[in-house]
Amino acid sequence: MSSPSLTLPSPATARNRRLLETLGALAIAGTYIYLVLNQPADITGGPGSASALIALSGFLVGAVLLIVGVLPTLPVSTLVLIPVALVLNIVLGQFVGSTLVPFYLDAIGTVLIAVLAGPAAGAATGALSSIVWSFFNPTVLPFAAGAALIGFLAGVAARHGLFRRFYLAPVAGFLAGIIGGVVSAPVAAFVFGGTSGLATGAIVSAFRSMGDTLLAAITKQALISDPMDKAIVFTLVAVLVYALPRRTRLQFPFVRRHRVLAGTAISQPTGESTGKSAGQDA
């Protein structure tokens, strides 16, 4: 019997990680479906904390499972980029979040990582971003699942070439924003009883004054803010990525393998093989 490899993950660990990722995604999806189907009537009627706890624990457990599943598989070159992404998220998000604009712009770093390193890295970065940011601002912690979803969707969009044409990036952002906003709305409704910003709060109030339930009003607000916000974020990331030197862009195996960006087509097989080995050094 050969001794276990010190550098390559065994098939059993790979299977366990895949299981963790699936469980994490299922926890997030299950929590959302439960909250929407069950539409707890107690949001505005009682303490409402049962649904807040379900939203919090379901989404958080899902996000943590995703991190535990994805983080060990990332190559070191991607891992060292995650703090950079987190810093960009926090600096820009904290700045925009406190202004009177109904946007957040708190996902630039997450989307950047997703475009450069793929959906799994994007999802892990989104979830990690919320968890690390909560050291300064605990109110972002419950949105970990939504942030992970945006990272994942951005990675999927990049993989299918939506960042190759400049005008497709905002379209992809708009669609990702619709999905992300709808998933994040129950968190805002059940945990916060509203939104955490003044401008977004004004939009919710407008819908409430028309007699909507809290969840409906917040979902509509999310459908106004999030797609626009993510369209802006995806466009900004496209600007940033194309402004990076070619050498830096091509450093990432995901960009090379899936021809994520226009003008990064590499036909020689050497680039392909180094990409694979770099992707497996976790």
Partner: peptide
């Protein structure tokens, strides 16, 4: 912002 937004809303 959180408390003000809740109170106004």
């Amino acid at each position: 912002p959180l408390v003000l937004s809740l109170l106004a809303m």
